[in-house]
């Protein structure tokens, strides 16, 4: 290991007036890392069921995301077409190569031009699946992977995200165990994006403007199977 590394570690220990941590202390810290405990979770993030979905909606819309409710995954192609028409956006969609998105009935929308893959910056609109939603702040959780390239989350002007109501959790701390369950303890995909509303900047005279470098619009398709049967 490098000399600088040793020099820095020595300097830290000198300042802390100790040598390498005693074994017992090290074991205690290892245990803290091996079984991460949530800290204080705000009361608003401890809701469940309908209240949790309602909390997510309220916060997402406050962050300037727009939301369409859908009773079924089969309704996604129609909802995308309608949204693009309503917003006067080109009927061209870049899809994440995610099996759930690929299996939707796109054939019923012949006027929608569909392509699949990462973005090179030329796609006006993307559709990607969310791993989870966080009710506390209306935040989407998107993961990088072979089926979910990160460029789709940032390069297109309009980012549409598919979120199933059952994937909405209360707090950030509810997401981490799901990640550990999927990727293994202390392992992560290359990128985990927590996204709350569309891109913005207030760097010019402290005036808030939408669409700085990322998407100008963030639209959430919330598929809520229970909504249909309610």
């Amino acid at each position: 290991m490098s000399a600088a590394r040793q020099q820095i570690l020595d300097a830290l220990r000198r300042s802390l007036r100790r040598d390498v941590l005693p074994e017992a202390d090290r074991v205690a810290l290892e245990a803290r890392l091996a079984a991460p405990k949530p800290g204080l979770i705000p009361a608003r993030s401890r809701s469940d069921g309908r209240a949790r979905v309602a909390q997510f909606l309220k916060m997402a819309e406050e962050a300037a995301a727009t939301v369409t409710h859908l009773p079924s995954l089969r309704d996604v192609p129609g909802a995308v077409t309608d949204y693009l028409a309503r917003e006067n956006l080109p009927a061209a969609l870049r899809l994440a190569p995610d099996p759930r998105l690929q299996s939707l009935p796109w054939a019923g929308r012949p006027l929608l031009s569909i392509s699949t893959g990462r973005s090179d910056g030329s796609d006006p609109v993307s559709l990607t699946p969310a791993f989870a939603g966080i009710a506390e702040t209306g935040t989407l959780v998107l993961l990088s992977g072979a089926e979910t390239p990160t460029t789709l989350n940032f390069l297109p002007d309009t980012h549409i995200v598919l979120l199933e109501a059952g994937d909405i959790v209360g707090a950030y701390e509810n997401v981490w165990p799901l990640l550990r369950a999927r990727f293994g303890a202390a392992a992560m995909p290359r990128t985990v994006n927590l996204i709350t509303g569309p891109s913005r900047s207030a760097d010019i005279e402290q005036t808030l403007q939408m669409g700085a470098h990322g998407p100008r619009r963030l639209h959430i398709l919330l598929v809520d199977e229970q909504e249909a049967t309610r």
């Binding site: 893959g117 072979a146 927590l194």
Partner: peptide
């Protein structure tokens, strides 16, 4: 803000089958 727009966790380089990164 309640939360900033983008909070991003990066871990290592792109994985073997990743399409970008």
């Amino acid at each position: 803000q309640e939360f900033s727009v983008y909070t991003t966790f990066s871990t290592g380089p792109r994985r073997p089958n990743d399409l970008d990164g």
